[in-house]
Simulated scan of single mutants.
Amino acid sequence: MDGRQRRILHCDMDSFFAAVHMRDEPHLTEVPLVIGGDPHGRGVVSTANYAARAYGIHSAQPAATARRLCPHAVFLRPDLERYRRESDRIMAIFLEFTPVVEPASLDEAYLDISDHLAPYDSATAVAAAIRERVGAETGLAVSIGVSSSRLVAKIASDWDKPDGLTVVPPKEVAAFLAPLPVRKLHGVGPATERVLIKQGIDSVADLRRRGREELAGVLGQFGATLHDFAHGIDPRPVGLPRERKSLGVEDTFQTDITALVAMDRVLGSMAAHVYDRLAQRGQTGRTVTVKVRYGDYRTVTRSQTLGQPVADTEELAGWARRLLRRTDAMDQPVRLLGVTVANLTEAGASGEQLGLFG
């Protein structure tokens, strides 16, 4: 990277799945709307409009819980092909402003406009023009964060939702990041957050008070990366994303678990999270893998490749639980579980109708 100042946008559609339905079916505009699985079954929430979020409903939550929180909410099954068509329209608009567009999912993308400010005077003006174009041509709202890095632009896009525009100039990055909880930083999940909190690190400001070597001693190489992030340093370029070969999640427990019912519950939650992320990317997959680490740190994996891509959360959770039973988890304390889906493909590519989110 040369000495010029980068100008990065993170564009994030507001309640994208729900917003498409509200635009096309105006009677849904004023009601709490939840897109996801059957609220009478074991499906999960994909997204919810802001009226539903006011009741505490959120993504990856069990749909049955959402129904208890708001019994009068309207529940709709996802229509992934419809969302993909809208996503293609939106990405095409982004490409009219810069060729450097990196889709992160169906409803968000990073744009590098460093060399593509004309005919506008600033990155802020480009972002405002994009918001206007998206709204005028699709009837949907997009929130945009503007800064000098992916890290800060991503956080900024969530700052003033819905329909927001937040600009963080380079000289304001340090002050913007300082009070944020560490979980706002890229790559900090629940397990890493727990490790940091145990070290007395709750905020970005706390991270800055620790040395690079100290953080690396706690978290390995990622500790050094977090040290940079805390200081607003993020050189990651924007470009075409590498093809993802798998997608998964894992968690290390504070206390080893021994009850099979507890492990099944964790795997169900992980399956919902993984499938939700796959659906957001318009993908599914055929190979399911479960990772188990015992209390003595032995680690095993069990995999199954299916004849057809995983159809919904319930199927993924079912396979994860079956694979768990091919391990010694029933007889050994377990300190870590993980669920991964591989052999990824575009959802619906084989022609079958996918039953998203159970």
Rank of each mutant, 00 (worst) to 15 (best):
R4F: 01
Q5T: 15
S15H: 08
F17T: 11
F17W: 13
A18V: 04
A18P: 04
H21E: 15
M22H: 04
M22R: 14
R23F: 11
R23L: 14
H27I: 12
L28W: 11
T29I: 09
L33M: 10
V34L: 14
V34P: 14
D38Q: 07
G41M: 07
R42A: 15
G43P: 11
V45Q: 06
V45C: 04
S46C: 15
A48W: 12
A52K: 13
R53E: 05
G56S: 03
P62C: 10
F75G: 09
R77Y: 10
E81S: 06
R82C: 06
R84K: 11
I90S: 10
L95E: 14
A104G: 05
A104N: 04
A104I: 05
S105N: 14
E108V: 02
Y110G: 08
L111A: 05
D112H: 12
I113V: 15
D115Y: 07
D121W: 00
A127H: 07
E132R: 15
R133G: 02
G135E: 09
I144S: 00
S147E: 03
S149A: 09
S149T: 15
L151Q: 00
K154G: 03
S157Q: 04
S157K: 01
D160V: 04
K161H: 01
G164P: 02
V167A: 03
P170A: 08
K171W: 09
E172P: 01
V173E: 08
F176N: 02
P179M: 02
L180P: 00
V182S: 10
K184P: 01
G187Y: 09
G187W: 11
G189S: 03
P190S: 12
E193V: 08
R194I: 03
R194L: 06
V195D: 02
S203K: 09
D206F: 02
R208Q: 06
G211P: 07
R212D: 14
E214Q: 08
G217W: 11
F222N: 05
D228A: 14
D228P: 13
H231N: 13
D234T: 10
V238Y: 11
P241I: 07
S246L: 05
S246A: 15
G248P: 05
G248A: 06
V249K: 14
D256Y: 02
A259V: 15
L260Y: 07
R265D: 14
R265M: 09
G268P: 01
M270L: 12
A271W: 05
V274L: 05
D276T: 15
R281D: 07
T284V: 10
T284D: 08
T287C: 10
V288K: 06
V290K: 01
K291F: 00
D296I: 08
Y297T: 04
T299S: 05
V300R: 01
S303R: 01
Q304M: 04
L306M: 13
T313H: 00
T313S: 06
A317F: 04
G318F: 00
G318H: 01
A320M: 04
R321F: 10
R322W: 01
R326H: 12
A329E: 04
A329G: 01
Q332N: 02
V334S: 03
L337E: 00
V339G: 02
T340A: 13
T345K: 09
A349P: 11
G351D: 13
E352F: 15
L356D: 10
G358T: 15
